[in-house]
């Protein structure tokens, strides 16, 4: 099992952590890498000078976005084979659907974690509207192995079941997988904790379960 189609989404030019993760994944599973640069345009201001002011502001923003995109494009050229450049530049209300459309055509979406509201909106679009899994990298992550020692937070809910299924390539390649439940009770008269059932059902060969 492997990831073959990776989408890296960045909202600023410096999506270094996201691209670093994408490179690590692509080195492990030769895959098609696409980078999506997402930028928001301001809403039109409805006032006497509104239109003119909006036009000035938007022109500046578009120029900044174009510069960001050039940097993203440059970064994508360093992948082997070179990554595919895509961009979304639109008003706040239209961003989610545009992001979701791109994400639902990938196996895995990679993003950097940040407090930026646009980033948050993009993450929600991926999680709620694309049906595809999301790998979030800490913003200072630059290099290293991903998935050697994995902690699975198991809640016996459909989201957790989905996440485990989507993480299969990573789980199968791990040296050690720890399944953690918090305050779980054995369900429905069973005597064994939910953990053991979950661990058994992952059917991971050659990986030690903790």
């Amino acid at each position: 099992m492997a990831y073959k189609d990776l989408l890296t989404i960045v909202t600023r030019a410096n999506g270094d952590a996201a691209f670093a993760v994408a490179e690590t994944i692509a080195a492990r599973w030769p895959c098609h890498v696409a980078g999506l640069h997402v930028a928001e345009l301001p809403q039109m201001l409805a006032s006497a000078n509104g239109a003119e002011l909006w036009a000035d502001v938007t022109t500046k923003i578009r120029a900044d976005n174009a510069a960001d995109r050039a940097q993203v494009s440059e970064r994508l050229r360093k992948f082997d084979p070179p990554g595919e450049m895509r961009s979304v530049e639109t008003f706040a209300g239209a961003i989610e659907d545009a992001v979701a459309y791109n994400a639902l055509h990938a196996d895995l979406v990679v993003m950097e974690r940040s407090n930026d509201p646009l980033n948050g909106a993009v993450q929600e679009a991926v999680l709620f509207k694309s049906g595809r899994p999301l790998l979030l990298a800490p913003s200072d992550w630059r290099a290293g192995r991903i998935g050697r020692r994995i902690l699975v937070a198991w809640s016996a809910k459909r989201e957790a079941a989905r996440a485990i299924a989507d993480a299969a390539p990573l789980l199968e390649g791990a040296e050690q997988v720890a399944v953690v439940t918090v305050d779980a009770k054995p369900p429905f008269g069973a005597s064994s904790p939910p953990i053991l059932r979950a661990a058994a059902s992952m059917s991971i060969c050659g990986t030690s379960m903790v």
């Binding site: 979701a100 459309y101 639902l104 055509h105 196996d107 694309s130 049906g131 595809r132 299924a165 989507d166």
Partner: peptide, 12 residues
């Protein structure tokens, strides 16, 4: 259709 449900079904 380009929807999350269809994407999920295809992946599964």
């Amino acid at each position: 259709t380009p929807t999350r449900e269809a994407a999920r079904a295809l992946a599964d």
